[in-house]
Design a protein around this nucleic acid. Sequence first.
DNA 1: TTCTATTATTGCAATAATAGGATTAAATTG
DNA 2: CAATTTAATCCTATTATTGCAATAATAGAA
Lengths: 109, 109
Amino acid sequence: MGTSKTEGFSKEQIELAAITRALAHPARIAILQYLARVNACIGGEIVEALPLAQPTISRHLKELKAVGLIKGEIDGVRTNYCIDRERWEEVRRLMGGFFRTPVDEQDCC
Amino acid sequence: MGTSKTEGFSKEQIELAAITRALAHPARIAILQYLARVNACIGGEIVEALPLAQPTISRHLKELKAVGLIKGEIDGVRTNYCIDRERWEEVRRLMGGFFRTPVDEQDCC
DNA sequence: TTCTATTATTGCAATAATAGGATTAAATTG
DNA sequence: CAATTTAATCCTATTATTGCAATAATAGAA
């Protein structure tokens, strides 16, 4: 099928899956790290910073934008991308909550 | 292609992508939440807890096991799964580090 | 307008992922 | 051993993802 079933899962589970799905590629991780590091809106430098062709990076940027982690601002002939801080915080909290699930003393394994 | 390029990306980027990839499905999120909640090793109860068929869940378990987030212990005719606490902590730190990237004051957007 | 620079989209081809039925494997029980 | 139970594997159909070349779209410069 190739499609994930969603019926029967909670909204939070589906959103967590969507977010992690967006992160699930070295290029997208790299893009976010890059944007976070330069801490500014930049354009096509991303293409030069990654070992991928421009159309491919454009697709990755689109996916990151789709989950709201970054936003792109058209500035004349170029587009400046940067991290969406609000969403970033939101996602950080979501992920933090997920991993905070106390996995303390287990009575097995 | 369908295959992610890995040359040119750091080990950390590749691992983060692999981990998030493993989380990138509602069923796998649900499995981890379930295992964390019951805080114990259980077998086929997972199948009854999720809206998916047994073979499908078996596959999801395999993927989670592949990144080390869970471990399965064969106990007679059944298999007991539980969260690998050490790895869980490790991943928590990794993800925490990623999201901690200071996205503070930006001079744009 | 024409040329240039920059980003987005489209159109493939190759590969991966998802789902579940059928089957197999392994261990326990009678 | 035969029957049962449980999980894993095999198989197939379907859809998604990835990558890049080619092309389009957009805005500004000449």
